[in-house]
Design a protein around this nucleic acid. Structure first.
Lengths: 186, 186
DNA sequence: GAGAAACCGGACCGCCCGGTCAACTTCGTG
DNA sequence: CACGAAGTTGACCGGGCGGTCCGGTTTCTC
């Protein structure tokens, strides 16, 4: 890859992430190109279709989460490690909310593979926390995978929220995961 | 209002709700009109703009929730009443997920008024539950207002989920609201 | 430094969207 | 039953979208 092409690719991915975060999936390629300071045709040279562009962004983000999960697996306190993982995920999402992108094109083959890797990382974290009695025995990795998205989603619904409102709801949800006072699940 | 106009209005609202639930906010007026069995022009006779159509649908749904809240306020067990309210809200959303509509045009004046009424109804429910020690003391009506949307949102992320998966996450979240084993909130 | 290959840009295409309008149909009243 | 008002319709408009394409430019290699 030529040097200018590599530079433009970086600019493009960053601009696209910003634009998607601001305007949702409806952000137009033309606006993304303008923001990156490149022509519209260049966008389609790097990514044949809008879907491919989205996939590239999402893949990067999931990869970062997998890396955090792998790192946290060696932490001392199993319960604290799980909470820390959910915090990292929420912080990533708080910075730029791109969750709707994850859901938009879940047919993409590479994305399915990456999702599986993420789920495996979370499973390991949860299994260890469960073994240490840090979370209730009936909670699964899938539960955490799903619930880790909820605090931001909830906090985003209030218009002029303080930027760390999600911490409040992460705390409530994590309390629901704890073994103390847990009621049986349906 | 003439009889045929009233009939078409009902057909239109039902068709629009279905179409939005299936295709998101991007559902086209033309498709909605076709589904309702009426012409496109007729849609704009009843609602001057797409936004007005959305608002009419959302208003109906919130009103139903407010009614449920008022009814439950006289129930025997305060804690069970709150859980029941959250269950009703989740069931409504499970049938047709239109939450994105609530968020889409929150500038609408009537919608703001209706949101306030809903929040008041929830506040009353939560205050009573708190007084009975059924929920932790630091939980507010706003918390419940925000969290009641989470179980469905979470359950929808898994593609081939059983239709009542949300009950699992409602149970977990409600456990997080209980006073037993609650950790202090940030 | 020169030629080839890779890259860039923006005019262009076909499509679909929300919204308008004027001709036509239906309703309900006296 | 007749007539005006209310309602309906689908062709039509301007605009924005994703994606294409080719003439001109930049970068790399020898």
């Amino acid at each position: 890859m030529r040097a200018d092409a590599a530079r433009n690719r970086r600019l493009l991915l960053a601009a696209a992430a910003d634009e998607f975060a601001e305007h949702g999936l409806g952000a137009s390629i033309a606006d993304i190109a303008k923001r990156a300071g490149i022509g519209k045709g260049t966008v389609f040279r790097h990514f044949a279709t809008k879907e491919d562009l989205v996939a590239a962004i999402v893949l990067d983000r999931i990869e970062a989460l997998v890396a955090a999960g792998d790192r946290l697996r060696q932490a001392g306190d199993a319960g604290a490690a799980l909470l820390e993982f959910m915090t990292v995920a929420a912080e990533q999402r708080q910075q730029r909310d791109l969750t709707f992108l994850h859901a938009a094109f879940d047919g993409h083959p590479e994305m399915a593979r990456m999702h599986a890797r993420l789920l495996a990382a979370i499973d390991a974290l949860v299994a260890r926390a469960r073994a240490h009695g840090a979370v209730r025995p009936d909670v699964t990795g899938t539960d955490v995978f799903l619930l880790m998205c909820a605090p931001n989603h909830v906090a985003e619904m209030v218009p002029d929220a303080p930027p760390d409102l999600w911490r409040r709801y992460l705390a409530i949800i994590f309390d629901g995961l704890r073994p103390e006072g847990a009621h049986p699940l349906p």
